[in-house]
Computed example of a mutant assay.
Amino acid sequence: MAALAIGLPLWGIPSAVSVEPQANPAAPSRNDLDTLLWPSVDAARRIDQRGRALRPADLRDRVAVVAFVTAECSIACVTRILDLDRVAKALPQALRDRAVFLAVSLDDAKGGNATLRAFADGTAGAGTRLRFLAGDAAWTASLMALLRYPAARMPEPPPQVLVFDRRGGIAMTYGGDPVDRPRLERDIPLLDTFAQGLGAAPAPASPQPR
């Protein structure tokens, strides 16, 4: 728990984690992850490199890992994506559907989905479990403001790797050069035990058979 709590929000988005239970769990309010991916309620749909739409419902009750890319990023950015791809593939089978890995492009959808898919396939391979998401100029501007990232540093994207708990609250920020893969592989299963997010107690361990 201490390893997770030490990285609580350092990047500008106020945490949605609360020690109080949600009044209406059937209609979850916007959380940190929603704010990142859909800054406004009328934000455009997010489409991944395979042409599939990403919706808030796809992320509910999932641990989410988010990194940032551009098609012109350096080897450090490419290595970061490869590290996250390895983490995604190394998770135990039971956890693979409980963790979502997103690589958010800051290219303002230049070249359309075909460019993003070529970058994704050429970097992590067609079989990657990462979903690469293209945005538009408004979304890119919002991300840069939330991350407090100077535009002068582009096209090198922000190095942060962000991890969100099962209720969409920011749980951890990692430096991305290089990704601490062993720690991330430990933290994701631990975060999955917090069914109500870090603001509530983790689920009790299942009794071991005698």
Rank of each mutant, 00 (worst) to 15 (best):
residue 57 A to R: 13
residue 150 P to N: 05
residue 118 A to V: 03
residue 189 P to W: 11
residue 6 I to S: 14
residue 147 L to E: 07
residue 200 A to I: 00
residue 76 A to E: 12
residue 164 F to K: 08
residue 147 L to Y: 11
residue 144 M to I: 08
residue 182 P to E: 12
residue 56 P to D: 04
residue 202 P to F: 09
residue 175 G to K: 11
residue 38 W to Y: 14
residue 89 K to F: 06
residue 151 A to C: 02
residue 198 L to W: 06
residue 54 L to E: 04
residue 64 A to L: 02
residue 18 S to N: 14
residue 120 A to D: 08
residue 97 D to R: 15
residue 96 R to C: 00
residue 194 F to P: 07
residue 141 A to D: 12
residue 154 M to P: 07
residue 46 R to T: 00
residue 171 A to D: 04
residue 40 S to N: 12
residue 127 G to H: 14
residue 77 C to I: 00
residue 65 V to P: 03
residue 204 P to R: 12
residue 199 G to M: 05
residue 37 L to T: 00
residue 66 V to D: 03
residue 50 R to H: 14
residue 127 G to D: 15
residue 159 P to E: 15
residue 2 A to P: 11
residue 64 A to I: 02
residue 173 T to S: 11
residue 84 L to C: 06
residue 167 R to F: 04
residue 175 G to F: 14
residue 146 L to F: 05
residue 71 A to W: 05
residue 95 L to C: 05
residue 91 L to G: 00
residue 50 R to T: 03
residue 56 P to V: 01
residue 189 P to K: 08
residue 81 I to G: 04
residue 1 M to Y: 10
residue 86 R to V: 01
residue 136 D to I: 02
residue 22 Q to K: 08
residue 39 P to T: 03
residue 8 L to R: 13
residue 6 I to E: 11
residue 11 W to N: 11
residue 178 P to M: 12
residue 80 R to P: 03
residue 163 V to T: 08
residue 55 R to T: 14
residue 83 D to Y: 05
residue 14 P to G: 09
residue 62 R to L: 02
residue 205 A to E: 14
residue 165 D to S: 01
residue 208 Q to W: 04
residue 63 V to S: 03
residue 21 P to H: 04
residue 4 L to R: 10
residue 124 A to P: 05
residue 46 R to N: 12
residue 49 Q to R: 07
residue 6 I to H: 07
residue 151 A to S: 15
residue 13 I to Y: 07
residue 31 N to F: 02
residue 192 D to W: 13
residue 55 R to L: 07
residue 191 L to N: 07
residue 181 R to K: 15
residue 111 G to I: 00
residue 189 P to T: 09
residue 171 A to K: 08
residue 133 L to G: 07
residue 73 C to F: 01
residue 36 L to F: 12
residue 59 L to A: 03
residue 198 L to N: 03
residue 106 L to H: 03
residue 42 D to Y: 09
residue 53 A to L: 10
residue 108 D to W: 03
residue 22 Q to V: 09
residue 71 A to N: 10
residue 177 D to P: 04
residue 185 E to S: 15
residue 100 V to Y: 07
residue 141 A to C: 01
residue 169 G to F: 10
residue 178 P to E: 10
residue 178 P to V: 06
residue 197 G to W: 14
residue 44 A to Y: 08
residue 62 R to W: 03
residue 189 P to Q: 06
residue 32 D to W: 06
residue 155 P to K: 09
residue 80 R to C: 07
residue 98 R to V: 00
residue 15 S to Y: 05
residue 124 A to R: 13
residue 120 A to K: 08
